[in-house]
Simulated assay, not measured.
Amino acid sequence: MSMGGRVLGLHLGLLVVLFALQFVLPAYHHGNIARIMVLASYAVGYNILFGYTGLLSLGHALFFAAGMYGMGLTIQHAGFTPAPALIAGILAGALVAGGLALLALRTSGVAFMIVTLMFAQAGYLTILYFGEYTRGDEGFVIQQAQRVLWGIDLSDPTARYFAAWGLFSVCFLLSLWLVQSRFGRTLIAIRENEERVRMLGYDTYAHKLGAMVVSGTISAAAGAFYGLLFGYAGATFGSVQYSIFPLLWVLLGGAGTVLGPFVGTLFMFYLIDLSSGVTSAYMLIAGVALVLLTLFAPQGLTGEVRRRLWKGLP
């Protein structure tokens, strides 16, 4: 089998396993894996910008929240049904990502990181300020009757799982295709040496702008689906914490690998889940795990597999 065939087989194999797990997982883990797939989609979006383009953003919660509130507010206040509400959430995230990109990409390095953080905080404060509509910190519940898509009740565990699987499959395969395309290879070249890419005649600004819009749109889709599938939208999802989480997931799984976001999200989710049953300082355990991985597996779990066993793993 060719290298490309093995790569495609591996990634499709993961999707087949996740599909099959729906029929065998106990209820607790069934719900967990559905949640992990949606959050891993968020991490996939983050990985395109950070892992492949080399831009460290601390503001991705802005896109996640834009998708969530774009979906949730149109259902709550405009009477949208789930399908157009999801589209509204995704478009909201794409517009926010495009607007932020036009401003943030005027900077680089640490300044870029700070600018994205500032705008994310502004978004979070906006959610709190318009509490009359967003319900602020308390958030709002999306009722079961409002979560029926094409006659399918997304509050049903099986329907929710398959919807999460569908979202993750699209984001995952899109990421695989993107990084193997000419555009994706140019992003990787920008990450490695932007000045040389610019000297070769490529418009690096346009490529970074495109990467940020794609990244923000995928993150917004994850936010919109999260709110719809789990029936809740709250300001917490726009806080700094939810900008740090995708960074941790990508670092743990392996930045710049297609599998890394899912592996890192799965690892971190269950690490926090298990350690929170032992101590209230569960984030300390997560921090120790990250330090150990940084010391002994600096390229992340999937990154180390690529370095040691499979050089051609995208």
Rank of each mutant, 00 (worst) to 15 (best):
A65Y: 03
I90L: 08
I152S: 01
D156Q: 10
L102M: 12
D156S: 04
S108V: 02
A85F: 06
L62V: 07
A94S: 08
L56C: 09
I87E: 06
L105K: 11
A122Q: 11
F140I: 00
A66G: 03
L49H: 09
V148P: 08
G151N: 00
I87W: 08
F64M: 06
Q146W: 09
I48M: 14
A145C: 08
V141L: 14
G72C: 01
G131N: 13
Y129M: 12
G136Q: 05
I152Q: 03
D137Y: 12
G51S: 00
L62P: 14
F119S: 06
L125R: 10
P84N: 08
S108L: 09
Y69A: 01
G123Y: 10
G139L: 05
G67P: 12
Y69K: 05
R106N: 11
A85L: 08
L128D: 02
V110Q: 10
M68K: 07
A65I: 07
F63S: 05
T107W: 05
G136D: 11
S108I: 07
D153E: 08
G59K: 05
T116L: 13
L49E: 03
I87R: 07
A111G: 07
Q76P: 02
G93D: 07
Y129C: 00
E138Q: 13
A120T: 07
Y124L: 06
T53V: 09
L125Y: 15
F64V: 05
G98L: 08
A78G: 05
A85Y: 07
F130I: 04
L55Q: 13
L117H: 04
A92P: 05
F140K: 04
Q143W: 12
F130D: 04
L154C: 05
